[in-house]
Amino acid sequence: MNNPFADPGARRDRLALLAYALAVLAATLVHDPRWLAGGLTVTLLLAGSGAGGLLSRVLRTVLPFNLAVSMGYLMLAWLRTEPPWQTLLLLNLRVLLLTAITFLFVRRVNLFRALGFSRSLTYLLGLAYSQALTFRRAHEDFRLALVSRSPRRPGLMDRYRVSAAAASWYLEKALAAARESAQALRSRGFFDA
């Protein structure tokens, strides 16, 4: 087997994976809003010129859930007549920080290289990912094809049929792809090692 420490890039990515796990743990063990805000600042600084884009993506991702929870909590606190601000600040800062750390990790680190120590895990994730991308592209095509073919807004029955056709196509392709990948593995001698 190849030496996992031979490639300095792989080593860096593996360290980044470890650092990411520790950062996530730390962000859930600290309950002082000042520390969380500091962590968020550091994360954005690490993002460099991409900080603005990162922050806006984080906000868009967490907004629906956080807004619902925050409004609900505000109402509850108002009924109980206690000041809610400290808790709201803590909750929202923590969510922002954790999401920002994750997005930065996804953007910067090659997960496949970070997992290079396990051939099986790399293979598993690689095949699942590429197949998922293929399915996602096909999924978009199913949706667009209906739009393209419809001079009028498609009816409920038509939309239902497209979903059914898409789902059965994925099932079919998945079964075929699984058989084919197993054969490909065998011919490459993956199982002989």
Partner: peptide, 27 residues
């Protein structure tokens, strides 16, 4: 030995099934 390919493809299938929309009246 077919475990890995089957699991990988079923993962992708599960991923895309979560994207399949069930239409409701009204769009």
């Amino acid at each position: 030995e077919e475990t890995l390919p089957w699991l990988a493809v079923m993962t992708a299938l599960s991923f895309v099934l979560m994207m399949v929309a069930l239409p409701l009246p009204g769009g």
